[in-house]
Design a protein around this nucleic acid. Structure first.
Length: 381
DNA sequence: CTTAATGATTGTTG
DNA sequence: CAACAATCATTAAG
């Protein structure tokens, strides 16, 4: 309300004028720099001045103009400057103004004065917040928008059925890998976030337009009684929109956060760990115990194992890393398992070598650093 | 619920 | 960078 204050001080100058000074062209020109006929200005100013000089009793003796809005006398009313500045009258009261205002409204110079006041106001307003009028497209909000678009949150509606469809596909799919289940879950949660986002956005937009309408109506109403230019209304609307868009940005930001959290939850496999299926661990164990002397699969071997087990190469690496360390830590615990797989490989090897009509030792040479479990080729300890 | 098993991550080392 | 070691977080089993 600094502009209002300025407005007041500006008009306080007018209010401070003595009735006799009003007619002085220089003083008027100083105040308004206008080229209007002095007589009219003097006339209307005199009326304004007269308001401050009028006593309450006098005013109350008059009747109320029935078409006057009742809220005249708002603290931000520019004409109040006349009262404030010319407070010598002991405080003009609303009743006074009601009448006087009506008189002024009918004055032929009223539109001119109105526009002048608007102009002054415009200038003060511009000097105060003219700089921050332009808001360049915030890179922050651009980033948020892009991300929401990329995630399909703010993009075109793909239908709430997308998640359901994905779930159905996962359920009916011939290879219902865990990833697809997780993915459908992810999609479902994303759809939820998306729905919340849109409903909130809609709410904000509705509230914004409601509020804007309300303010506009109010200002239009008031523009009949105080200087409000259409430009000012426009600016007010812009301010409201900026406020609401900043709220929207908060919404976008929190939505982004939710998506990020969702993503990290689903992409961080550690949090959604699934055990490998039996067949996969069997393949891995088979390899491990049959290469116990050197349980370090080459890159190619890892790739093959990964393919066989339906897991990634890095998962194979993880598995071997864990296996080696855990085996080494407690060989006894793995004894049984080792024997089991050793038998398996032994049997396999026997099957193969039996056809070759020669049984060379099926066990691993075991020349490496990992101690082999004790077992006999026939499977007994 | 507690506990063991287990896949993944993090930090360190050579 | 791969291997190791410690640790985390989840799952499965009791």
């Amino acid at each position: 309300m600094d502009d209002q204050t300025r407005m007041l001080t500006g008009l306080t100058g007018l209010g401070g004028l003595q009735p006799g000074d009003v007619g002085d062209p220089d003083s008027v020109r100083k105040q308004q720099s206008l080229g209007q006929p002095q007589q009219d200005i003097g006339d209307i100013l005199q009326q304004i001045m007269a308001i401050t000089d009028e006593s309450l009793d006098e005013a109350q003796a008059r009747c109320w103009p029935e078409d006057s809005p009742a809220h005249w006398g708002g603290s931000d009313d520019p004409t109040e400057g006349g009262r404030a500045g010319g407070g010598t009258a002991g405080g003009g009261l609303p009743v006074n103004f009601q009448y006087r205002k009506h008189a002024l409204n009918c004055h032929r110079m009223k539109p001119a004065l109105f526009s002048v006041l608007c102009e002054i106001k415009e200038k003060t307003v511009l000097s105060i917040r003219g700089v921050q009028e332009e808001d360049p497209p915030d890179p922050q909000i651009m980033r948020l928008d892009n991300m929401l678009l990329a995630e399909g949150v703010s993009g075109p509606e793909k239908g709430g059925g997308s998640a359901a469809a994905a779930a159905a596909a996962a359920a009916a799919g011939g290879s219902p890998t865990d990833s697809s289940i997780e993915h459908s879950d992810y999609r479902a949660k994303l759809a939820q976030i998306r729905q919340i986002y849109h409903s909130e956005l809609e709410k904000y937009e509705q509230a914004c337009s409601e509020f804007t309408n309300h303010v506009m109506n109010l200002l239009r109403e008031q523009s009949r009684t105080r200087p409000i230019s259409p430009k000012e209304i426009e600016r007010m609307v812009a301010i409201i929109h900026r406020k609401f868009s900043s709220i929207q940005m908060q919404l976008k930001q929190s939505t982004c956060e939710a998506v990020m959290i969702l993503r990290s939850r689903f992409l961080d496999a550690r949090r959604k760990r699934r055990n490998f299926n039996k067949q996969a661990t069997e393949v891995l164990n088979e390899y491990f115990y049959s290469h116990l002397s050197n349980p370090y699969p080459s890159e190619e071997a890892k790739e093959e194992l990964a393919k066989k087990c339906g897991i990634t190469v890095s998962q194979v690496s993880n598995w071997f890393g864990n296996k080696r360390i855990r085996y080494k830590k407690n060989i006894g615990k793995f004894q049984e398992e080792a024997n089991l797989y050793a038998v398996k490989t032994a049997v396999d090897a026997a099957n193969v070598s039996a056809q070759a009509s020669q049984a060379n030792s099926p066990a691993t040479p075991n020349s490496g650093g990992y101690p082999a479990p004790c077992y006999t080729p026939d499977g007994r300890l």
